[in-house]
Computed example of a mutant assay.
Amino acid sequence: MPTTMFPRMAARLLFAILLGAGAGAAAAKDTQLRPWPAGQPTPALQVTGLDGKTWNLAALRGKVVVVNFWAAWCGPCVDELPVLGALAARDGVVVAGVNYKEPLTSIQKFTAAHPLPYLVLRDRTGDAFKRWTPGVMPTTIVVDRRGRARWRTVGEIPPDDTQLRAAIDALLAEPAAQRSHNQK
């Protein structure tokens, strides 16, 4: 390959990277709440609390749960903390922030600097992130009272968001799940 082609190829590659980064930033601002993918069952969510104990989403049946996958190094994750804090203050709603693969000491340092008014959990292996998200952070999933994933938003939740709040309101208005004969 002639040496004059290399700088041109490098410049094109850099342009493509910068263009892609700009598109990603634009997409993050245009996040939308979408239904959980049709035909995709709700995966189990069993992760670890900061206390080292196992935590299971199934234990929260009867409540609307907002599961947020985040990391301290993720700028949009940090920017949406006030939105998640406001959701956690609502009756009947539990917010669970699931940290992606960071060491416990890093999470503790972050939460000391940014007190989170909701449950903070650890996905130590990244397996839950792989099962629940399309691989983008932050991703937020709304789970109904029966434990079914119903809505997902990929990217930062904007402070003026109304879609997520409306979806949560609709789930809170649904009647609680009926017990089956086997649960009596």
Rank of each mutant, 00 (worst) to 15 (best):
T3L: 15
T3P: 05
P7Q: 04
R8W: 13
A11T: 09
L13C: 15
A16F: 14
I17W: 05
L19M: 15
A23Y: 13
A27N: 05
A28Y: 12
P35V: 01
A44G: 06
V47Q: 12
G52W: 14
W55I: 04
N56T: 03
N56S: 11
L57Q: 00
A58C: 13
K63V: 01
V65S: 05
V66S: 02
N68L: 04
N68K: 00
W70C: 03
A72S: 08
W73R: 03
G75C: 02
G75D: 04
P76E: 00
V78D: 04
P82F: 05
L84T: 01
L84Y: 02
A86S: 02
A89E: 11
G92N: 14
V98H: 02
K101P: 09
S106C: 10
I107M: 06
T111F: 10
A112R: 10
L116I: 07
P117D: 11
L119V: 04
L121G: 02
D123A: 09
R124V: 10
T125W: 12
T125S: 12
T125P: 08
F129D: 00
P134A: 09
T140H: 08
I141Q: 09
V143G: 08
R146C: 03
R148L: 12
R150M: 08
R150N: 06
R150A: 09
W151M: 13
R152H: 07
R152I: 05
E156H: 08
P158N: 03
D160I: 00
D161N: 12
T162S: 09
L164F: 11
L164C: 07
A166G: 08
A166T: 05
I168G: 06
D169F: 15
L171T: 01
A173L: 12
A176Y: 04
R179I: 04
S180K: 13
Q183M: 14
Q183G: 12
